[in-house]
Amino acid sequence: MSDHPAQAPLRIRAANAHDRDLLAQWALAMALETEHKQLDPATVLAGVEAAIDDPAKARYFVAVREATVAGRETISSAAGTLMLTREWSDWRNGDWWWIQSVYVAPVHRRQGVFAALYRHVESLARATPGVVGLRLYVERDNAQAHRTYQSLGMVDAGYAIYEAEFPT
Score class of each variant (00 low, 15 high):
66 E>L: 04
57 K>M: 13
73 E>D: 15
69 V>N: 04
70 A>C: 12
61 F>M: 01
65 R>T: 08
58 A>I: 00
58 A>P: 06
48 V>N: 05
73 E>H: 11
52 I>V: 07
68 T>P: 07
61 F>L: 04
46 A>E: 05
49 E>P: 01
49 E>C: 12
75 I>T: 14
49 E>W: 00
69 V>T: 08
70 A>H: 11
41 P>E: 02
54 D>A: 12
75 I>L: 15
44 V>D: 06
62 V>F: 02
53 D>T: 09
61 F>D: 06
61 F>C: 08
57 K>I: 14
46 A>T: 03
72 R>K: 15
70 A>E: 15
40 D>N: 14
65 R>H: 10
55 P>R: 00
56 A>V: 12
72 R>L: 14
70 A>T: 10
45 L>C: 06
64 V>E: 11
44 V>Q: 02
75 I>G: 03
71 G>W: 15
45 L>V: 03
74 T>R: 15
62 V>R: 05
41 P>M: 05
46 A>V: 01
57 K>A: 11
67 A>G: 11
50 A>I: 03
53 D>K: 15
61 F>R: 12
58 A>T: 00
45 L>N: 06
40 D>E: 10
66 E>C: 09
74 T>A: 15
65 R>D: 04
47 G>Q: 10
42 A>W: 06
58 A>Q: 03
67 A>T: 12
66 E>M: 10
47 G>L: 02
66 E>Q: 13
61 F>P: 03
71 G>I: 11
72 R>P: 06
75 I>M: 09
75 I>K: 13
64 V>L: 02
61 F>V: 07
40 D>M: 05
59 R>T: 13
40 D>C: 12
70 A>Q: 14
49 E>G: 08
47 G>M: 07
74 T>P: 10
55 P>S: 04
43 T>K: 09
74 T>K: 15
56 A>M: 11
71 G>R: 12
53 D>R: 14
60 Y>K: 00
74 T>E: 10
70 A>P: 07
43 T>Y: 08
63 A>Y: 06
72 R>T: 14
51 A>V: 01
59 R>S: 10
53 D>F: 06
46 A>G: 05
65 R>C: 09
62 V>T: 03
63 A>C: 07
73 E>S: 13
58 A>G: 06
75 I>E: 11
65 R>I: 10
49 E>L: 12
43 T>R: 10
68 T>V: 14
63 A>N: 10
46 A>R: 08
69 V>F: 03
69 V>R: 08
63 A>T: 02
50 A>D: 12
65 R>G: 05
58 A>C: 01
53 D>W: 06
55 P>M: 04
45 L>P: 01
50 A>H: 04
41 P>C: 04
57 K>L: 15
57 K>N: 13
58 A>D: 09
72 R>G: 13
